[in-house]
Amino acid sequence: MQSLSNRKKVVSNKKMTFLERIYLPAIFGGMWITFKHLFRKNNTLKYPEEQRVLVPIYRGLHVLKRDEQGRENCTACGLCAVACPAEAITMVAAERVKGEENLYREEKYAELYEIDMLRCIFCGLCEEACPKEAIFLTDRLLPANFERDEFIYGKDRLVEPIDQRIDISKRQHTGKRTEL
């Protein structure tokens, strides 16, 4: 009967010839292919000495931005956590008290903001959902680690340091997509 997929092969148990039985031609044939690859172009990079060039909108490690005056943009509205398909974002909001106006931009801020990087799929939906231009993905890579706990990034590692701003201007486009 004809097979429906037309890919059926009938197994033949035909007797091997003498050359096939000593296997040596097949072994040397295989070794020749391996030897040829020594002179081909390398497909891998010697990370971390060599680093791949990333596009400016590469979706890597997140950053919580500050505004020009160094105040945190995030107001803990929870839209990133709703948008997150992996449910990687947790937050607890707090009210800004008098005297903290130079720390937080809005009257509410995120007291705790955690991203579980093991759950995160780096889809960038949090960045898209954010109404305050607070969370952005950057072209930094997520470092490897031995402990699972170390992958839960809190505000200490997400908020950009005030003296080492992280440039995300290339990711921001005003309505029109800019050329990469």
Binding site: A76, C77, G78, A81, V82, A93, A94, E95, K108
Partner: peptide, 9 residues
Amino acid sequence: FRFKSRVWF
């Protein structure tokens, strides 16, 4: 309930 959570959570 002020700033405790968002209603959708």
